[in-house]
Structure formats: C-alpha cells, structure tokens
Amino acid sequence: MDDVDRAILAVLEKDGRINNADLAARVGLSPSPCLRRVRRLEDTGVIRGYRALIDPAAVGRSLRVFVGVRLARHARADVAAFERAVLRLPEVVHTHHVTGNFDYLLHVEVADLSAYEDFHANRLAGLPGVAAVTSYVTMKTLPTGPAAR
C-alpha cells in the first residue's frame, strides 16, 4: 500500500458513492489505473464493503445505549452460547469482546427508555451465561472520524 492507495481510502471513507472519474481526479490518477487500484483494494480485503449510514432516529431507534456484559463463566461452550444468542438480537448493532471490567461491550439502539427496559429485562438478562449487565445511556453523539473532518 502506497500514498495513492491511502489517498483513495481517505476519499472513499468520506464518500463511498463517489464515481471513479471524480475519485481519480481527487487522487491525481487517470480513471483506469484508479479503478484497478480500487478493485485490488477490494479483492485483498482492505475495502471490506460499502454501506449506507442510517439515522437511527429516522427508523425509530433514537435511544443509543452501550451495555457492558459480564459472563458468569468463561468456558468455551458458555462463551459460544452467549455469542450465538446475542447475534440474534436485532437491537444490538455491534458486539465487541473486550478486556477490563466486562467481557462484552454492546452497542444497542431502541426506540426509547421504555423499549430499553423491556429489552434489558426480557431479552438481554436472559441470555446464556449473563452474570451482570451495566448500561450507559447516550446523551449525545459527537461527529467523529473521517466523515466529520
């Protein structure tokens, strides 16, 4: 990977829908070599995909909660059972296996606090192996990353 590849990635991080001609102009290449580079970055897995960023509030998921989950046991079967179960919950946007006070950090999106209470009590707390759940309700999300610059 060279500086041109990095420039292509920087542009695509900000605008994944940019057409090849505009991308090529922004990184100082002609369209054909630019397209070859993009395809190579895709084929080698550097670019893993393209997706739309959806406004959670617009689809009825305006409450964002980060949830620390501690498991009762860490045997391979217990961990696998928890992971299989948590991946089936549509409210869970991201699941991270972490170090520290929790075993997992979940990013959860729901309509409101009442919906989160129901999710917590009736779905999350009953997952296999869950010993403790700690919730952090998001008050505001600041724009960060390449799109905010």
Results as ranks from 00 to 15, higher is better:
142 L>V: 11
56 P>E: 05
43 D>A: 13
111 A>E: 08
83 E>L: 08
142 L>Q: 03
82 F>N: 00
38 V>K: 08
8 I>R: 03
3 D>P: 05
141 T>I: 13
38 V>R: 04
107 H>F: 04
41 L>W: 08
99 T>P: 02
86 V>L: 02
30 S>C: 07
88 R>Q: 08
77 A>P: 11
68 G>A: 08
83 E>S: 07
129 G>D: 03
98 V>I: 14
34 C>Y: 02
92 V>K: 01
105 L>Q: 02
94 H>P: 02
6 R>W: 15
122 N>R: 15
20 N>H: 13
56 P>F: 04
89 L>V: 06
54 I>H: 09
82 F>Y: 07
115 A>V: 05
88 R>N: 12
60 G>R: 07
59 V>K: 09
111 A>H: 09
129 G>M: 06
11 V>S: 10
70 R>T: 04
91 E>K: 03
22 D>G: 01
91 E>L: 00
88 R>I: 07
108 V>M: 06
54 I>E: 07
59 V>I: 14
2 D>H: 14
28 G>C: 11
56 P>W: 02
142 L>Y: 03
54 I>A: 06
140 K>L: 10
10 A>F: 13
149 R>G: 14
101 N>K: 03
33 P>W: 11
96 H>D: 09
52 A>K: 10
13 E>H: 14
9 L>K: 06
138 T>G: 07
18 I>P: 11
113 L>S: 11
116 Y>F: 06
102 F>A: 04
92 V>C: 05
81 A>G: 03
37 R>I: 10
18 I>G: 11
97 H>Y: 12
145 G>K: 12
133 V>D: 00
6 R>A: 15
36 R>M: 15
147 A>V: 15
37 R>H: 08
134 T>S: 13
123 R>G: 00
73 R>H: 15
